[in-house]
Design a protein around this nucleic acid. Structure first.
Lengths: 341, 341
DNA sequence: GTGAAAGCGCTAACAT
DNA sequence: ATGTTAGCGCTTTCAC
């Protein structure tokens, strides 16, 4: 019952009657191997269930198959869904996921360096990083990075323009939403926006404002500062305390805010959607339970596309990443907190 | 702008005026180093921000700092919270998280082997594994495993008795809940249970049944088969179609089921908690928004305790893991879908 | 208490 | 097309 020694390259080579270089070549699908030998080696590998050591690989500076995922803490299962999408893509390549979380900027950057240094990941997927990140220079010799649910801002430090991103079009989606609402007869709109340091929040807000302007007859105003349902609940109560009337609709930054706001509305006896409409953003699982009209974020798809973009960058060793931005569509889910749109 | 070569042991040794063996000893906090030398080495390490290569470490068979997390797919952010707790604990040790997901048993076992083989993790945390897992033999030379939100069943295959677990007491918590409900005057209870192949579901169900029996004057029945909110919604509609009256309370397997059931109740004009009470289980973030009375699962704590238990097993290299079972408390959160408890 | 030296399992020149 | 060899950066005997 003692630990059987791990199978290694040399052993495989011996079993296949060849040398370890040849086996190594087969492993990497390199060209200069005769079809016959290749077949023989592959057979042995399969037969003995051999898997090359990630560590030995890493030592030589070759690809390790390790993909790092760096995230900030977020409630609402967003992370879980992204990671699932990433896992799907990474698994197909036989790689591993190295996950880490950081709250503060310093810690975030430190982890980034460590993950691609000590924990030699082939590349990093950064999930919705803080905008502070882009003050950090991105060196040409840094391991590939893909931004997920984010993109490089105009004023980023040097080097970031080569970094790819997979994200959604907040501005466009918000304009689409406002247009749909306007078409459905909603005129007086209040946007409960997100926090000032949140990029998505700013984009949705600017989308909201520009859309309102471009729809004659529609008027809108913005309330700042909600991200959690508790905040949504508080802001809605503040609003109801300060105003006698109601707008036609509350367009919330995200589902959580909408949940909280909705709870406040219902507690104060306001009927939704009869008296007032409300919309969220994200389409969390419970949005369906609550029957909230919202904008669907295809989160797993974001993750999957990010991983694919990363493989793209990793494979073109030739340096120069693409700096490509992939946009994922975000359809509107019409439910019963609004009239049919 | 060229790639600066990574700092290594030899370089640190040179800078500290000693040999690499000594540096290695310092790194591992080994005893046979003079305090003076140790201090000097530590200083250099700190000054140059040196971090030893995980790969070189792995090559020698030493600990790698890699902790594997193996999960099945679960909705509702459960995974995200556990992983966060695990990350907290692992980060303190300077380790990394290797995350993987598997749906099917075969795949699960394959990943387990790969993670501790090719991707030489020091140990594995298995989140709520399928019970099929325990049919697989656990070999004495396997890397340490800790079960999170699960525990070794009676009829497990050989070797599993040495495996530690961190979990909650479903049976006890359900008995506590039923007792509290009974004390609050609820008499006629219906338990909307989970799926038959779900261990938690079975435990909660058996807790429910045994508690009902031990409370004279209380009667209860069980409806099987809900896990998602959609299923809760469907089952509740079925129930309302089949019965003219209502029980005093619906005790649901989890929050999702409760959300769905609640939605159905409200759509049919039933008032909660005036006409009927309803409880969930998990205390998801939105449970608060919906103001659902539920049992709080301290998910991040489960993760944290699991990681700590794993370190415990990893460190006692002496073979024999403890087989210790850590129970995490699950308090009841009383909100407004029941009367005060 | 310290250092020298032998690997760990692979990749990547460099022969042939 | 295939084999030989020199490392990669660490841990770990084994001498001193």
């Amino acid at each position: 019952m003692k630990q059987t020694k791990r199978l290694n390259l040399v052993e495989i080579a011996r079993l296949a009657g060849t040398s370890k270089s040849t086996v190594s070549r087969v492993l990497q699908d390199q060209p200069r191997v005769s079809p016959k030998t290749r077949a023989r080696v592959k057979e042995v590998i399969k037969k003995y269930n051999y898997e090359p050591s990630m560590f030995a690989r890493g030592m030589t500076g070759a690809q390790t198959g390790l993909i790092a995922v760096l995230a900030r803490w977020m409630e609402s299962g967003f992370f879980a869904d992204v990671i699932r999408g990433i896992d799907d893509a990474v698994k197909k390549k036989g790689g591993f996921l190295l996950c880490s979380f950081a709250e503060e900027h310093e810690e975030y950057v430190r982890l980034w360096r460590t993950l691609t240094g000590r924990g030699q990941a082939d590349g990093v997927i950064m999930i919705a990083p803080s905008m502070d990140l882009f003050k950090e220079p991105f060196n040409p010799y840094d391991k590939p990075v893909v931004l997920c649910a984010s993109r490089v801002p105009e004023d980023a430090a040097e080097g970031w323009d080569a970094v790819s991103a997979v994200t959604t079009d907040n501005v466009g989606a918000m304009r689409t939403l406002v247009t749909a609402l306007a078409d459905a007869g909603y005129r007086d709109m209040v946007h409960i926006a997100g926090l000032p340091d949140n990029v998505d929040a700013q984009q949705r807000k600017s989308g909201f404002l520009s859309a309102v302007v471009s729809h004659p007859g529609v008027q809108g105003c913005v309330i700042d500062g909600a991200c959690t349902s508790e905040q949504g609940y508080g802001l809605m109560n503040d609003y109801l305390d300060a105003h006698t009337g109601l707008p036609d609709i509350f367009v919330c930054f995200n589902d959580s805010v909408a949940f909280g706001a909705l709870r406040a509305l219902r507690e104060r006896g306001r009927r939704v959607p009869e008296e007032v409409g409300i919309t969220g953003w994200d389409d969390e699982v419970v949005a369906n339970d609550i029957s909230l009209t919202t904008v669907h974020m295809p989160v797993a798809e974001l993750g999957k596309a990010s991983a694919e973009a990363l493989f793209d960058s990793v494979e073109r060793k030739s340096g120069a990443a693409s700096g490509k931005v992939t946009m994922i569509e975000t359809p509107i889910c019409v439910r019963s907190t609004t009239r049919p749109l």
